[in-house]
Design a binder for these strands. Structure first.
Lengths: 185, 185
DNA sequence: CAGAAGTTTCAGAAATTACTGAAAGTTTAT
DNA sequence: ATAAACTTTCAGTAATTTCTGAAACTTCTG
């Protein structure tokens, strides 16, 4: 499983970016390698290609599975376990979003809900609580909306994305067609 | 500048979450403190309240400024520099998005563009390049779209978000009204 | 211009996070 | 039931990141 120069560059870069994307260097590299390789790869091959220990590889694969980005694939006649991406690029991106939402937003929402139940002890706290409430509502909108978008499915989401600035015009159109309904603010 | 219990909980939590949001613990705490405090705060007060060194405080504030999340505010008659949030909650959230896009997506886009210029040396590379192209296009859509959404401005964006599942229905509506135009896929 | 009041920088220490590799565990085949 | 082929775990080590605090710097004031 020698990596070609192009694949090496990409894998290294995904490693560098890994930490910014929520996982660590090795995990990023493993993911890139699995995605860019058309054939399923065995853990040992990954360890060899990336020059990392077998143990580290195992942990990385475990993490990628917890993110639902890669899955095991049984290759008939082989004893080893092989790994492949858990879906197409679009699916993977979606999973990353979702997983990050769980890790980055949900815990905060939960804390905010709790803090908002407390009775403010004084002016200062009342003000802070008001701010926390704003944050809570914002996060709630974001969460609800991102789920909404995922439910649209790839094709519609793509249409919406490619629509670009048309979205603004569409909103105006809607207001004219359905006055009163769904009006917010 | 003693923190009340409620503020303390919130500040500590934002510290914990800090690293997941792209900055570190201290930076998260400083941000929370500045946002939740109605009055401007001086660097020394922050250091005291959070029990961190003055040097660390200075670096944290610098980073928050580079993210355009807090700004300095001159208080007449005072020699010290005071800090306040760089805008309302919505603005801050937007800045975080944008800044993260710059750090998490832009560098990858740039590398991908480069790699796509290379001529694939063999089948394996051609396949990998195809995958990289898919990733590139996806990231491009996301980038363009997020910019689009920001241009909508807070009110419209809020309308759109609150619209929820209506978006799907709206897309269908649009297709009927403007057949052919903007049709993708 | 001296010095007081404040801020920033940065080398080294502390804390955190990631990695290795050997040992323990699991599964399959005979 | 044993052994071979493979995987996982985890204690200890290595690498990275964050934090401190003293020194250098910058303004302001008299």
């Amino acid at each position: 499983m020698k990596m070609t120069p192009l694949i090496t560059s990409a894998v290294m870069h995904f490693g560098e970016m890994g930490s910014r994307w929520g996982f660590n260097r090795t995990v990023g590299q493993i993911l890139a390698l699995i995605v860019l390789n058309e054939e399923p790869i065995a853990a040992q091959e990954i360890a060899d290609a990336l020059n990392i220990s077998r143990g580290n590889t195992s942990m990385g694969l475990k993490e990628l599975q917890s993110w639902r980005l890669v899955k095991q694939q049984l290759v008939p006649g082989e004893r080893k376990e092989f790994f492949v991406p858990a879906g197409d690029i679009w699916t993977l991106a979606n999973r990353v979003f979702e997983e990050r939402r769980k890790r980055e937003i949900d815990p905060t929402m939960s804390l905010l809900r709790d803090l908002l139940l407390d009775t403010p002890a004084n002016e200062k706290e009342a003000n802070a609580q008001h701010k926390l409430n704003e944050i809570h509502d914002l996060l709630e909108s974001i969460t609800a909306w991102s789920q909404e978008l995922q439910n649209l499915g790839p094709e519609k989401l793509n249409t919406l994305m490619k629509l670009g600035s048309g979205v603004g015009r569409m909103l105006e159109l809607k207001d004219k067609l359905l006055p009163g309904k769904n009006s917010v603010n």
